[in-house]
Design a protein around this nucleic acid. Structure first.
Length: 465
RNA sequence: GGCGGCAUCGCCAAGCGGCUAAGGCAGGAGAUUGCAAAUCUCCCAUUCCCCGGUUCGAGUCCGGGUGCCGCCUCCA
């Protein structure tokens, strides 16, 4: 079955044809590890995971590379401002290296909880300084660079196609734009390849280079590491939609200038998660982390399910009610799965084909989920077949349908006491007292479900906002 | 100022010119329960922001409004 993907480069849905089938090289821009990821960041990684799983489902052999930006990402793309990692280190009174290490681990924990398959290769920027310098040297030899007082810059006017990914013309960037003006730059879109360490402050992360002590620019990192591990051109490059106009545009400029061939064949971008009507962003101060969700009693996979209800190229509006809905829907899938007998059976070919068609149509996960529900509700399909078919779907959905996670909650001693008291009242058919205790427990944030096996506790969830 | 996108049930959200406008959540009715919860069954948009147009046929294409968002600062 053909796979179709929307390519930002051509602005069209295209038939996916890897350069060297059945191998697929895929590079996804990883996190800058100066803080926890928020669920908006994580939406993109979920989208990329779905993409990868769909490729695997189509029997491609995927080599997935993800970078960790642990140096060089400044607080402004105008190449002003501080290095994000160093700034955070100062704030937390830890070394830059510790900060990077700490948030890298936090990130890896998050994606694990979301059932995101780990990349085949993780690469850290600080492990590739020599490679960055090598590429800058190539660019320098080809005349693409120039020196200013604070670094080595890439001259974007030397690239006729500059901005092709974003569809932006150089000339249109000036008027009204909120660009910090750097008088030493030849063009407003020029960007730093290598930045010199400031004279007055000692940086924690800095290296020698042919141009002086300093650190690499952000964009060079992805250009170098993607090509190093995947060759050039490689098949797929992904990232958030925000990377189109600058980061990916600059990657393309560098890589194609250096090697005179396309950087990647397909460029895919995930849309934003929005909060109210605004995007979720650290700078907007409206961000929520995965731990925030967990603290409220939501499972990370409920968030994954929530993300699957929207197409990756549409903005998705986050509300607590919508997340609650996702959690409930997912629980229902789990409940259904538990009922089905665990015996070997062939999956249902018709449903599988429908599902396959949906995911191959530019990852139409909302459709795929709709098909999933149709199957669950179809009483013409025997339950053991439902089970195997759903497990087949779960190779892409990644919702752990075969092994539903238990939501662990911490219950204080006090609640256990009340619960016991209520059970005694119930045995004595003192319903009034039992209901009163139930109310009391509810007031303390827990909901009781009486089952034939005894009472079960759940954390009450705030539905507001 | 430039570029791009979006407006579909109370909420989230599919749909990309043609069967009766997916699906989930919420809501309603019933089964179950001491009552609940959970679970199960059934019901739940003659209509797609507004106005024109193209077409045998439009939520889907075109033109014009209105409202909103993103990017051109950092961002997934």
């Amino acid at each position: 079955m053909n796979l179709y993907l929307y390519n930002t480069l051509t602005k069209k849905k295209e038939k996916f044809e890897p350069i060297n089938p059945p191998y697929v090289g895929m590079y996804t821009c990883g996190p800058t590890v100066y803080n926890y990821a928020h669920i908006g960041n994580l939406r993109t990684y979920i989208f990329e995971d779905i993409l990868k799983r769909v490729l695997l489902y189509n029997n491609y052999i995927v080599n997935h590379v993800m970078n960790i930006t642990d140096v060089g990402h400044l607080t402004s793309d105008a190449d002003e401002g501080e290095d994000k990692i160093e700034r955070e280190a100062k704030k937390e009174r830890r070394s830059a290296w510790e900060i990077a290490e700490f948030y890298t681990e936090a990130f890896k924990r998050d994606i694990k909880k979301l059932n995101i398959i780990e990349p085949n290769i993780w690469c850290k920027a600080t492990d590739h300084i020599k490679d960055f310098i090598d590429l800058i040297l190539i660019l320098e030899n080809k005349g693409y660079t120039y020196r200013t007082s604070d670094g080595i810059y890439f001259d974007t006017s030397k690239v006729p196609e500059y901005g092709k990914l974003a569809g932006q013309e150089l000339e249109n960037l000036l008027p009204g734009a909120r660009v910090e003006y750097n008088p030493e730059k030849r063009n407003p879109t020029d960007f730093a390849l290598w930045k010199f360490s400031p004279k007055d402050v000692k940086r924690q992360m800095e290296w020698d280079s042919p141009w002086g002590v300093g650190f690499p620019g952000w964009h060079i990192e992805c250009s170098v590491m993607s090509t190093k591990y995947l060759g050039q051109p490689f098949d797929i490059h992904c990232g958030g939609i925000d990377h189109i106009p600058i980061h990916h545009t600059n990657e393309i400029a560098q890589s194609e200038a250096a090697y005179d061939k396309p950087m990647a064949k397909y460029w895919l971008h995930g849309e934003f998660l929005v909060m109210g009507d605004k995007k979720m962003a650290k700078s907007e101060g409206n961000f929520i982390t995965l731990s925030d969700l967990e603290e409220k009693g939501y499972h990370p996979l409920a968030y994954r399910y929530f993300c699957l209800t929207a197409h990756y190229r549409s903005p998705l509006r986050f509300t607590w009610t919508a997340l609650e809905g996702a959690q409930r829907a997912l629980n229902r899938l789990y409940e259904n799965m538990k009922k089905y007998p665990k015996v070997d059976a062939e999956f249902d070919k018709n449903y599988e084909e429908e599902f396959h068609k949906a995911i191959n149509d530019d990852l139409d996960m909302p459709k795929a989920l709709a098909i999933t529900w149709e199957l669950v509700k179809d009483n013409k399909i025997p339950s053991e077949i439902k089970r195997t078919t759903l497990l087949q779907f779960d190779r892409v959905l990644g919702l752990s349908l075969d092994n539903p996670p238990e939501i662990k909650i911490e219950v204080p001693e006090e609640i256990w006491g009340l619960l016991e008291e209520r059970e005694i009242a119930r045995k004595n058919k003192d319903w009034e007292k039992a209901d009163k205790i139930r109310e009391e427990i509810k007031a303390k944030g827990y909901i009781i479900e009486d089952t034939p096996q005894g009472p079960r506790l759940k954390k009450a969830k705030p539905l507001s906002k």
